[in-house]
Simulated scan of single mutants.
Amino acid sequence: MITRDPQAFLAVARGMAPDFGPATARAAFLVTPEGFARAEQSALDNRYMAAAGGYHCEAALAEHRALQRALAADLPVFAFPGDPATPDAVFPNNVFATARPDARVDPHGRLRLVVGRMRHPVRRGEADRADIRGFFRALAGTGEIDLSQQPHPCELTGSMVVDRARGLGYCGLSERCDETGARLVHEAFGLRATLVFDLAPGEYHANVVLAVLAGRAVLVSPAGFADPVIAEAIAGFYAPHVVRLRAGQQAAFAGNAIALAPGRAWMSQAAADSLDHGQRQVLATAGFALGQVPLAAIEAGGGSLRCCVAEVF
């Protein structure tokens, strides 16, 4: 099921047990910020990006190494080298994602690597990386669904926030993902139901304004939705474990969070610092300790911690 109707979606979602698959990944990979710099094409529809003078490659590389070390406390984390020809490739979750074995999608019952279609040409080169594709194909025995050559933008888990426990998707439409792209990602992931909605003007990815943590809690910024009623419908589904973010917290990337193990939610230091005591208590009550990593240099690129992480299920 894929729909724009939140009530129809919730009627189905409420009947879904958390038995679709593991709620959190078994590994993750990163792409190092080699040649990290402002990509002017990406800046056309990403208002979070800093001016060119705000990029500091060596600082971003140091932060990225610390990020890998920190996340490795929760699961295996490996990194592929970046390429100066793709200066904002540090956010691989938009290009690569994995989906659990599903005989409806792959009759061989294999883990699937999904390759997305990026809106901007400067990022389409990331999808052609033989090393990343080859790792999954040759070493992990993974099937592949390649969406990169079709014409509809679909920037994977940037645009589609996924409740992996229940097989539910929340897809925010913008220049980075249209309705056909949303359907393609829904089908590639084999999701049970997806709610499609418009992001507010000026927003580019759903994962900046929404995070579902291990199927148990949600961080949501209503101002990031064209219709805040949609945000409240999603919040109601995960109540009482709901953190509603204010505009300043959204700008600090508090919505760009991820749970990589059942008991911890990760976000950048700036994002964590923006949370108040009550919001932290909501996460604690839901069973999440808060992991935080300084990422000021990387955040100049218009994304934060969650954007850096491509999950392997």
Results as ranks from 00 to 15, higher is better:
52 A>S: 13
46 N>D: 10
46 N>L: 12
37 A>M: 05
49 M>Q: 10
51 A>C: 10
55 Y>Q: 05
59 A>R: 11
60 A>W: 05
42 S>T: 14
59 A>D: 06
56 H>L: 08
54 G>W: 01
60 A>H: 03
59 A>I: 03
31 V>T: 07
33 P>M: 01
39 A>G: 10
55 Y>R: 04
58 E>A: 03
47 R>I: 15
57 C>H: 02
59 A>Q: 10
36 F>K: 01
31 V>R: 11
55 Y>W: 04
37 A>L: 05
59 A>E: 07
33 P>L: 04
52 A>Q: 14
48 Y>A: 12
45 D>R: 04
43 A>W: 11
36 F>T: 08
38 R>T: 07
57 C>S: 06
59 A>N: 09
45 D>L: 00
47 R>Y: 13
32 T>D: 05
42 S>M: 12
51 A>I: 02
41 Q>P: 00
41 Q>V: 01
36 F>N: 03
43 A>G: 12
44 L>C: 14
56 H>G: 00
44 L>D: 06
44 L>G: 13
37 A>H: 00
43 A>N: 09
54 G>R: 11
54 G>L: 07
33 P>Q: 02
32 T>V: 08
32 T>A: 10
39 A>E: 14
59 A>L: 14
48 Y>I: 08
44 L>P: 13
56 H>R: 13
50 A>D: 11
49 M>C: 12
53 G>M: 01
33 P>C: 07
36 F>R: 01
33 P>T: 03
43 A>F: 10
52 A>M: 15
57 C>R: 01
35 G>D: 04
42 S>C: 10
31 V>P: 01
46 N>S: 02
51 A>Y: 07
46 N>F: 13
58 E>F: 03
53 G>E: 07
57 C>P: 02
48 Y>P: 01
48 Y>L: 08
54 G>M: 07
43 A>T: 11
57 C>T: 02
53 G>F: 00
55 Y>M: 00
40 E>W: 11
60 A>P: 13
47 R>Q: 15
57 C>K: 05
43 A>H: 11
45 D>G: 02
58 E>M: 08
48 Y>W: 08
56 H>K: 07
58 E>Y: 05
49 M>Y: 06
48 Y>C: 03
60 A>S: 02
34 E>M: 13
55 Y>S: 00
36 F>V: 06
31 V>F: 09
37 A>P: 05
43 A>S: 08
45 D>F: 04
38 R>L: 12
36 F>H: 03
42 S>D: 09
34 E>G: 14
54 G>I: 07
60 A>M: 01
33 P>K: 04
56 H>A: 13
35 G>L: 06
59 A>W: 11
42 S>G: 12
42 S>P: 00
36 F>M: 06
32 T>R: 09
39 A>D: 13
40 E>L: 05
41 Q>H: 04
45 D>I: 03
48 Y>V: 01
38 R>D: 14
44 L>W: 11
60 A>I: 11
51 A>T: 12
41 Q>D: 04
43 A>P: 06
43 A>R: 12
47 R>H: 15
52 A>I: 10
44 L>V: 15
40 E>F: 05
60 A>E: 12
35 G>S: 13
45 D>Q: 03
46 N>R: 11
40 E>P: 06
39 A>T: 07
32 T>E: 09
41 Q>Y: 00
